[in-house]
Write a protein that binds this DNA or RNA. Sequence first.
RNA 1: GCCCUCAUCGUCUAUCGGUUAGGACAGGAGAUUCUCAAUCUUCAAAGCGGGGUUCGAUUCCCCGUGGGGGCACCA
Length: 455
Amino acid sequence: MSQVRVRFAPSPTGFFHIGSARTALFNWLYARHTGGVFVLRIEDTDKERNSERFLDVIYESLRWLGLDWDEGPDRGGAFGPYRQSERSAVYGEYLEKLRAAGRTYEKDGATWFKLIGERTEVFDDHRKKTVTKVKVAPTVIDDLIRGRVERVEDEDFVIVRSDGNPVFHFVNVVDDIAMRITHVIRGEDHLSNASKHVELFKAFGAPVPQFAHIPLILKQNGPGKMSKRDQGALVEEYQRRGFLPPALVNFLALLGWNPGGDREKMPVGEIVRLFDLPDVNQSNARFDERKLAHMNMLYLLELTPDRFVALARDYFQRHHPEAPALAADPAYFREVMLLSQPKIRGFEELPAYTRYLFSDEFSADPNVREKVLGKGDPKARLAELIAALPEIDFASDASIEAGIKALAARHSLGFGDYQAVARLAISGTNAGPGLTSLFRVLGKDRVGQRLQRFA
RNA sequence: GCCCUCAUCGUCUAUCGGUUAGGACAGGAGAUUCUCAAUCUUCAAAGCGGGGUUCGAUUCCCCGUGGGGGCACCA
């Protein structure tokens, strides 16, 4: 059997949709699984746009996700060029083939593809115009995911517009032929178009590739598929929010595919090994950001300390360049990040989660304040703690804990009686890393100042 | 309106005729703990409706209903 060749063919619109990302991912997975070739083809026939910059959006998103391509505009390959805007010679050549075969005609200045069969004029009341219907046998689309799909393509369609530009259906098929694409893996929204494409392949006398129409991703809330404007629709959003690419890839792979059994979190190599087209679901999937957040946390948890700290710094630099965290001593930054790693679900939580550790300017959360101060005699505990502070050994979490417990024991109380109010005083909140760790990292002086300030 | 397509917990899904219908996220309760998370235990939660086929249907077929997509000189 010949080598699998798949392609991902985005248009440079300036956005990289999450649905496109999954289509790219499934193509990439199939190529890597089969030892095939993953082609990146840019469908930029839509002229007057600054495609150069928009192209970068595509490159960057794919690279960020870790989806590398074997042939493409920047890498070359035996079947280039890989941008449709540079392929007009190829389209002219193929158009000529169709003309020679008598499968085209001109009407209203455009070139139409001619179906073969008996023709009748019919008034279409939905479109409110007279159309020419052609009596043709149903087109069969053999789909690796959907099975056998039949559809009647009974109207001629434009392949070259009156302005001379070929349309999507035409260039798409021509390029798939010219680039020797063996498997067309794309969204289900193209299933209805597939009959046009199959008819074109047949008219060219070219082998019809295997089709695999994958289910669509539906928006989180409300009806319809996810579109540009929806929350969480763009890959750059996840990038900006500091999601880990392997987590997003793992999550995306599971939207419409699973390896059977109860396996979910898998290294990408494992996904590559297990992925296959017939295992892809047929029903659309709703995007669930909460599950993605959970997946992200799992990946965050397993990062080595060095890696976590490096990525955290990178996140701050890219998205919060003014954050005081970046001005802090690197060793201190590291300490704080390592306290945070097991607590957060994503890097985007970091600035708020660690703010009080990098700045003395923070205010107590009113709700927390009310809650903490309303229980027992926190002010008394605070005073006791301040008084005892000099004798507490800040060498380690354990020594701090021992110190506070000794204090508590003297008053026949427990560690917990001091914890809440002390935390409120030094952080302004009731959530965060362990109190003893906070004490140690902040140091006795700053802890003392903050306790005094609050008292 | 026409055409294509899909249908299991709120969500993502397992099951390829016989299961107490399993897992994960989210939710509830509890345990642990210096808070919050994490973790562990636990609870609640599903076969869209109606017909067939079959000894037996979530699973196969048909109809309906509902969802999604497509019907351009957009891609």
